[in-house]
């Protein structure tokens, strides 16, 4: 940190222009979309374990559909953020296995493939005539319910490392001390539960009250623990000079102060109380509001946490 005595005060008097934010909003969107993509599978699995399929009539096709849409958004923005997008193929042709980017890209691709198969089967079984009459793809999937059930445990298992690998990328980004905290791994997991529960709440209008209560429970737990972890990192990172310098950007007067606290209140505190209240008395509209707020707040929190370590000068 800057010196407080005159004799050691140091000021840069000539230097070059330094890079600003390198990973910007596209990476925020990428992480946010992946949280939804894997979260709906994890929360969907929990619901299927707790309830009968009839209580959640559209879950069998809606769950892979949501995962498919948001995983494609995630992969699209992964690709568009590359300065040489066509060379993405090098990850498959020349993989470097110490890199979490490589391992993640392989796992996410396999995950998307399995999700696509589940989507075809789910739509084939539940929505005959979609996307059009005589579609050979969904016709193939119509009688493959057994395959869906066989694939599902693998998909749920794979959803965990696909959720977590971004935390490993952040851990490998050793220049950014804020991301080196072990809490990042659990933060990714809570984000997936939060995003998955929120996305499923938005399509749960014809589900049983009990199923919706479970969604509210997952949302309440995920927002609570995620908020607690953010607060833990916020206060305990003071022990290192770099951590403190990074968090200065979210402290009072810092450029990301408003976005951070807006995200915390909007995405964590308010949805927590609505979700807890909803476990007592079912209110679909309020729960939907909580879900939307949680998704918006999660994006803001992720955006701040991604950008602030990049504002520090490294050299």
């Amino acid at each position: 940190m800057e010196s407080t005595i005159h004799a050691t005060q140091a000021v840069v008097s000539l230097d070059v222009a330094l890079p600003g934010i390198i990973w910007g909003w596209m990476i925020t969107l990428n992480m946010w979309a992946k949280s939804i993509g894997t979260g709906v599978i994890l929360v969907g699995a929990f619901l299927l374990y707790r309830h009968k399929r009839e209580e959640m009539p559209n879950l069998r096709w809606m769950m892979p559909l949501l995962a498919f849409i948001f995983l494609n958004i995630f992969l699209l923005f992964t690709l568009t953020d590359l300065h040489q997008p066509y060379r993405m193929v090098n990850i498959f042709l020349h993989p470097h296995w110490t890199s979490a980017i490589t391992v993640g890209a392989w796992m996410a691709s396999l995950f998307l493939l399995l999700i696509t198969i589940m989507l075809i089967i789910g739509v084939g079984e539940e929505l005959p005539g979609v996307p059009f009459k005589g579609c050979k793809l969904t016709a193939w999937g119509r009688n493959k319910g057994g395959l869906y059930d066989a694939l599902f445990p693998f998909v749920v298992f794979l959803a965990i490392p696909v959720t977590l690998y971004t935390a490993i990328i952040m851990a490998e980004s050793s220049a950014r001390e804020l991301w080196q905290a072990p809490a990042e791994v659990m933060q990714m997991m809570w984000a997936a539960f939060m995003a998955g529960a929120s996305a499923l709440i938005l399509v749960s209008s014809n589900w049983s009250k009990e199923a919706r209560r479970d969604l509210a429970l997952v949302l309440a737990i995920a927002t609570f623990f995620s908020f607690m972890m953010y607060m833990g990192e916020y206060f305990f990172s003071f022990k290192s000079a770099e951590g403190e310098a990074t968090l200065a950007f979210v402290h009072s007067g810092g450029p990301y102060n408003i976005e951070f606290w807006f995200g915390m209140v909007l995405g964590f505190i308010i949805p927590f109380f609505i979700a807890v209240g909803n476990m007592k008395s079912d209110n679909k509209t309020l729960l939907r509001v909580a879900a939307i707020l949680a998704l918006v707040g999660l994006y803001m929190a992720k955006d701040v946490w991604l950008k602030i370590p990049q504002l520090l000068n490294l050299s």
Partner: peptide, 8 residues
């Protein structure tokens, strides 16, 4: 591939 991982 220009992912900028190394810069991070």
């Amino acid at each position: 591939i220009g992912c900028a991982g190394c810069m991070m």
